[in-house]
Every structure is written in structure tokens, then in C-alpha cells.
Design a protein around this nucleic acid. Sequence first.
RNA 1: CGGGGCGUGGCGCAGUCCGGUAGCGCGCUUGGUUUGGGACCAUGAGGCCGGAGGUUCGAAUCCUCUCGCCCCGACCA
Length: 478
Amino acid sequence: MADQLPSRSENFSEWYNTIVQRADLADYGAAKGTMIIKPYGYALWENIQTYLDKRFKKHGAKNAFFPTFIPLSYIQREKEHVEGFTPNLWLVASGGGETLEEPYAVRPTSETTINMTVRNWIHSYRDLPLLLNLWNSCFRYELRTRLFLRTSEFLWQEGHTFHASWDEANEYALAILTDAYLDFYANAAAMPSLAGRKSEKEKFPGADITYTLEQMMGDGRALQGCTAHNLGHNFAKSFDIRYLDRGNELQYAATASWGLSTRAIGAILMTHGDDKGLLMPPRIAPTQIVIVPIFGKHADPAPVLAAAKQLARELADYRVEIDARDDKSPGFKFNDWEMRGVPLRIEIGPKDIEKNQVVLARRDTGEKKFVSNAELLAQVAQTLDSIHDTLYARAKKFQDDHTFSVDTYAEFQARTAGEGGAGFLMAHWCGNRECETAIQQETKATIRCIPFVQTKEAGKCIRCDGASQERVVFAKAY
RNA sequence: CGGGGCGUGGCGCAGUCCGGUAGCGCGCUUGGUUUGGGACCAUGAGGCCGGAGGUUCGAAUCCUCUCGCCCCGACCA
């Protein structure tokens, strides 16, 4: 009897920490705060990459690579940017035993090094837009780390784009947010998102506007699933990126940047799943279907194994694994793959072979049914789609059930009291940073975003009674 | 950097108070019986007890120093 998992409903945080390691997604690295992504976890990342990469390219972005080491003076060039990132910066002080004349920053993000380079690539409006994307890792010094959610080094993509005007940069950032990220979360990860923009306090250092998708995790905490920034002319001015427009006038370019990291894996894990373990969304699941051959009593295992392999060939369009381990019982395998979150299981034994059928078992509902070989392909396709829809619907319902309109600070404090998440709290806010900071200090809740979609209504700030024209979303966040 | 806890086979732990040369569960090896919801019997392998120094005839155990990790707080783009 294997150890029981911690209960997801009763101890969410322990459940997460245990499942990430037990499902072989990731492990701790030797250096403090670093993460080893194991094959099962990396396969999930590769599926995320494949999905997103296509959409970025559809929007004209081209992949490139920029160095990990960045001269410190580059980072220091944009005022807000350096202030924002200094607490998280790793520096390389020596190389080859020699102290460096100027330390290198280990990229916390590539805005500066990209801008220093691209300023020489752009001379004319004909060079715009310039649309780059990098798949790499970045490094941020962190005091408290958690696998996938916050580590000292993590994988991500960072897009950096250069445009002729502020509006064009803005449109591009929004296009990526909705056509790439929102689409990915909804149609690949089976996750609803709350789209909006960040408050001044929460936005990216150096951005004019930061757009975000906020998702609700299974414990009612919020997680920022990605960001897209309209950097306006800030970096172009700091790095002197100018071009000649059609009227032969020198203009500053406008820039945007946008990113999604391996934190998305954490988001997927914390959105789906139950007390049995993980539940991978079918379209990006590392293994979509596991075939468990049942070797019957006193029967020859060879025909069963052969039938399982034949099944796998028929299902070649899917990511399929056959669990032919002969030292594990079927019951153990069922539990094992359920813990790992494989959405669909096919059981095949001697009795099924006689009857030209298999057993289809879905991870989300636990439902098991016999399916004839003739109907198998259609049933598999339909069931995987149905699991995706079920996961999305569940997550949406959970988000809706944990979204509250809050009109008094007393209720706000009551909802944010205690250890766990508080859901999304839609409340009026005067727009002042002082109030925002005070609310955070008093309740641990932060403004996650100012949603794009909401009914405009006048109201009073939850804390100071100041005038407000729209609600913002507060939550306790990861 | 404060406050608390912990370092003992791959993993989880007991043993530490009352010093006598290391044990349990899981996993792993091999053989056999099993296999439709977490199988069983037998067998075997595996440990500088985080590190250094000290006390002692003798240290996982007592003393001193040191290194590392975890939790809470501070920090978090």
C-alpha cells in the first residue's frame, strides 16, 4: 500500500508540494531555490511551447537567442527598471579566476540587452515592426521558493517587439494577451482567465501599461498566468531607439514585451486535480492515454501485450503509453496513472480480446465503459474533448463561486482573514497607491487587475470612501 | 537578518534524555506464486549517523565549534 497523498481539499499547499515530486514532474536542484524539471514535467512544458510558439509566429514573431550575461550598466539604463530588479539580481563578479572590471548581471529579463542591440537594427519605418521572441531561462534571486511557482532560475518565453507608435505597441501586446495566452489557457490548459491591466503599483518596472491574465487556483488564491506590457517610449528613450518616419522625421520607437513561464505549469496543476492527484488537461497532457494490459489468471500474457501494442498503433495520433510492467498489479497501475493525471486509460484483458472491446476509463469523472474496437477511435476523440470541456467548466464554476462583490471594508477583512485564499474580491478603489498599500498590509490582498470587462458603476473606495468609477479585483496571490 | 525545527541506507522515520559499536517501514535485487482498483512468501544488497575538534576504555548519543536544509516573519516584477 503506497502512502496516501495529502488531501487537496484539506491541505492544498502540502498536496501541491507532494504531488509535484511524486508525479515525477520536478525536484529541487543542488543550488538553493533551483529546480530540476524531470522528463514528465518537461514534456508538459514542450507541449505548452509547441502550442504557444505557433501562435506567436502567426502574429509575426520570430525566435532568437540573446546572452544570459548582461553588462550591469545595461540594466541600470532605465530608471524604474533598475529599481525594480535590483533586489532580484544575480551578479557574476569574476571569470577565469579574474575579477571582472564590470560585473555581469545574469538576465532577470532581456529588455535591456535586447534594446542595446536592436537600436542598431532600426533606422527607418521600413525596419518596423520588429518582432522577436526568446525561449530561454531567467534568474531572479528569491528568498522563498516553490517548485514551478517561484524559483531562482525558471524557463519562459519573453517576446520583445518594436513598433512605430504607442498605439501599435499597445495593440500588439493586447493581441498576444488574447490570441496567444488567453487562447492557450482556455483551449489547451482548460482554464478560464480574468483579463485586465495592473495597477501602477503592480505593473512591470518601466512599463506604461501591464496587461495580465489572472487565474484562480484550487485554494482560492490568485495566480498571474502571464503578462504583456506596453512599454511605450520608455525603453526607446533610455536606449535611444529612433527611426525616420515617412516624412523623414526622427521618431522614437515604441516597444512591448510579453511573457509566460513555467509558472504556467504550477497554474495548471493547482487548477485541476483532486485528492487522487493531478489531472492533466488532455490537449497538452504529456501522456494522453495509458494502456494497461491485464494479464489474466494462468493465461499467456503474450497475446494481451500484442493486443495492447496494436491498440497503441491505432492510436498513433495521440501520446500513448503502454504500462507493461510485470511486477505491478493492475490496481497499482490505475492509481499510479491517476496520481500522474493521465486523462484517459484503456484497459485490455483476455476477456476483452475475445469480445473485440476495451474498457475506457476517464480520469475526471472516474467513469468506466466498454467500447467496441470499431467505435474506439471516435470514442477516444470524443472522450478527450469531453474531459477538456469538463475541466474548463469545473474551473469556471469554481472561479464564479469564489468571486464576490464586496462593498464594505468589514466584509473585505472578514473574507481575507485566515490562512487560505479569499477568491476574487470585486471592490471599489479610489486609485491611490496609499490605499492600495494599506489594504495589502492590513489584509494581505493585492490588486490583481482592473478587469477589461465589467459594468461601469460609480462607488466608494472600500477603504477611504473616495470616489471610484469601476471595481478592481483583489485577491491573495501566489 | 529575527523566531522555531531538523540533519541517521534511495525515501520516510526510530534510537539521543539514561554512552556499549545501528534498527523499522517503503523502495531496490533474486526466485516463486500472483494480476479486471494500491498482491504475497522467501532471499539478498545497501549506512564515513551533515562536518571538525574535544571528553571517555568506548560517542549517532555528552561538550564546543561549524556547514546545510525546512517552517514562520521580513522581501517578491
